[in-house]
Amino acid sequence: MVPTKDISRVAAIQTVTSTQLGQNLDEAAALIGQAVQDGAELIVLPEYFCLMGNKDRDKLAIKEALGSGPIQEFLSSQASMHGIWLVGGTLPLDCGQADRIYNTTLVYDPSGARVARYDKIHLFGYRKGAESYDESVSIRPGENTPQTFMAPCGQVGLSICYDLRFPEFFRAMGPVNLMVVPAAFTYTTGSAHWDVLLRARAIENQCYVLAAAQGGKHENGRRTWGHSVLIDPWGDVVDSIAEGPGIAIGDMNLQHLRDVRESLPALKHRTM
């Protein structure tokens, strides 16, 4: 049983990930260290923090079996070295198919033990003019239900990027204190919808939302929106960062969360 406390400091790491795995891990380690120096106890890395390849299928070359591989070793060692809860953005896991992977979030506790796993179930697709994306080319959708884990800030719900557009997915987590969203929103969709969707998820579920994004122009030509952020249960922004590598960090206050739910008991008023 993990004891909860009223104040927990949490951080979202923002990167502009390259095509080089080693370089990306080094940059993630530096930002994790900076967040720890600033007092973070739970840290979230962005989607694809380990690689943004030149082609969709480049990630297949670094896929790992669950429980082994340099990316998982990196995440476990960072969690144990700093004594933090680490939500490992996403990494490519073997899905049993030669030409596809699971896009997976793994969570590690302060001892370095893996405590949760979520395989992304909603796969992004977008086509307008010359801009086109289809994650199903290289990713197999997860078959898991919404996943949560217990941390000192209370129950935490896991999601990945495109999941953000499906409010029923977040509602199915049940009441949680924090929802985390590792993401790599495109500049086009992010500039239009990122902020309003994140604030909506926080307001309708009366919880904190911590979103860690890719944010900038990548080697492969893709431009991501960034704007990593911590939002409180009233929908107010606690901290955020625009573009470029950096950290959004702030305190989760569980008394504030309780006050919001008591003054406006929307979760109790639900009839469906």
Score class of each variant (00 low, 15 high):
S228L: 06
M173L: 14
R222Y: 12
D236M: 10
R222Q: 13
G221W: 03
Q206F: 03
Q206T: 05
Q255D: 15
S191E: 13
T186M: 08
D251K: 01
G246L: 09
R199Y: 02
I160W: 01
A184K: 08
A184T: 05
F170G: 01
V181P: 04
N205Y: 06
V180F: 00
C153F: 00
T148F: 03
G250K: 10
P245H: 03
T148E: 01
I160T: 14
A242W: 08
P175H: 07
I241L: 15
I241W: 10
H193A: 14
D232V: 07
V229S: 04
V156Y: 04
R222I: 14
V156K: 00
I241Q: 03
I249F: 02
N144Q: 15
N205R: 09
G174H: 06
Y187G: 03
P233F: 01
G226P: 06
I247D: 01
L198R: 11
L158D: 01
S191D: 09
G226L: 07
R165T: 14
L198E: 10
F166H: 13
P146W: 02
L197C: 09
T188A: 12
Q155I: 08
V176Q: 00
T224K: 09
V237E: 14
Y187L: 14
F185T: 07
G157E: 00
D236K: 11
G215R: 03
L210C: 05
F170N: 01
E243Q: 15
R165W: 13
D236A: 12
L178I: 05
Q206A: 12
R165M: 10
A192E: 10
D163A: 01
W225E: 15
P245Q: 11
H227L: 00
Y187A: 15
D251E: 14
F169R: 12
L164D: 12
G244H: 04
P175W: 06
P167N: 05
W194M: 12
L198G: 07
P146H: 08
A211T: 04
P233I: 03
D239F: 08
H193C: 05
P233A: 04
A151H: 04
I160Y: 04
G157P: 02
A151I: 05
A248L: 08
E168Q: 09
A242I: 13
T186E: 08
Q214R: 07
N144K: 02
R223F: 03
P152C: 08
D239L: 09
F185R: 05
H193Y: 15
F170H: 14
M252T: 10
P152H: 11
R223E: 15
M150S: 12
R222S: 12
Q255C: 10
L178V: 15
E243C: 13
L254Y: 07
A183M: 13
L198M: 14
K217A: 11
N177C: 06
M173H: 15
T186Y: 07
M150V: 11
L257E: 00
C153H: 02
P233E: 06
N205V: 05
L210P: 02
W234M: 12
P167L: 11
E243I: 14
V229G: 02
H256L: 12
A213P: 00
V237Y: 03
A213K: 07
D251S: 06
D236V: 12
G250Q: 08
T189E: 15
A192T: 10
A151V: 04
A202Y: 08
P152T: 08
Q147D: 00
P182E: 01
D195C: 05
R171E: 10
W234F: 11
V176E: 03
A202L: 02
A183Q: 13
S228D: 09
A211N: 07
